[in-house]
């Protein structure tokens, strides 16, 4: 009972601190205390770091989806609909979720490790002694970069995934190329795209928030950096999976 109480107590304190931290970040953003140059540097680094593996994963997903879909749908003589299947699966679910998961494992881990190392080497405290706000200087650019980069990566993932599906559709299932593309465009409606991006925005905020928070509060030397980094990635994964389920339900309720 005591242990449980402590656990709950610490959990509530932790959540309070994390919310306060997010409030600080958002406070800086709405007051336009954003260092645009630093944001671009982070965008470049985070994007470049993740883009290849995300493209590869998406290509593979598109290929596999189309293969499975084509085999299954051929039984009902509906192989033309494989374009629908691939496009909708990617745009609504797979691209946002896979991209976010990979992104948190690469860019998110990097954010936590960088901020964590700065924290244990007193660089964050030193920033304050130099009269500079560490949230503005070190945290906001990394957070903003998440929010900018993740949607771009998701768009890349969608295009590459659809291209993968196209290859199977056209060369394996012998669906005419223009037909496949037309079907894809018809399948993906404005709301699908839009609902996918609501998710992506939430994922980006969750990853940026979690990973910056864990890094900023890292303690315990190099061991601490390892510990907090794994914690940040694990939390990001859980938040992505859970919020995806909730958001999917909400979006389907409102937009069907």
């Amino acid at each position: 009972m005591r242990v449980l109480n402590n656990f709950l107590f610490n959990g509530i304190i932790g959540l309070g601190n994390a919310l306060w931290f997010l409030g600080e970040i958002i406070g800086h953003i709405v007051r336009c205390r954003i260092r645009v140059g630093d944001v671009f540097k982070q965008v470049y680094e985070q994007g470049l770091q993740s883009v290849v593996i995300i493209a590869l994963t998406s290509l593979a997903s598109g290929l596999v989806l189309a293969l499975q879909g084509y085999v299954a749908m051929s039984r009902f003589g509906a192989k033309e609909y494989v374009a629908h299947l691939v496009a909708l699966s990617l745009v609504r679910e797979l691209s946002p979720v896979f991209t976010a998961l990979i992104f948190s494992g690469k860019a998110g881990a990097r954010i936590t490790a960088e901020l964590g190392a700065m924290s244990v080497n007193d660089q964050i405290l030193a920033t304050r002694t130099l009269g500079v706000d560490p949230i503005e200087f070190l945290v906001v650019p990394r957070f903003m970069a998440c929010v900018v980069v993740l949607p771009i990566l998701v768009i890349i993932s969608e295009f590459v995934g659809i291209a993968g599906g196209y290859m199977i559709g056209v060369y394996e299932a012998n669906i005419p190329g223009t037909f496949y593309i037309n079907q894809t465009i018809r399948a993906v409606q404005y709301v699908d795209f839009f609902s996918g991006f609501i998710k992506v925005f939430f994922f980006a905020v969750l990853i940026g928030w979690t990973c910056c928070y864990q890094g900023y509060n890292t303690q315990g030397g190099s061991l601490g950096v390892g510990k907090f980094t794994t914690k940040a990635v694990a939390f990001s994964y859980i938040f992505i999976i859970v919020s995806n389920a909730i958001l999917t339900k909400i979006i389907l309720t409102f937009w069907g």
Partner: peptide
């Protein structure tokens, strides 16, 4: 508040034990 402290700290030098240079 921290905001005021940031201004005051501009006039104070602080040397950390390990230097705390930006790497």
């Amino acid at each position: 508040p921290e905001k005021e402290l940031l201004k005051i700290r501009q006039k104070i030098g602080y040397l950390f034990q390990e230097g705390a240079l930006y790497d």
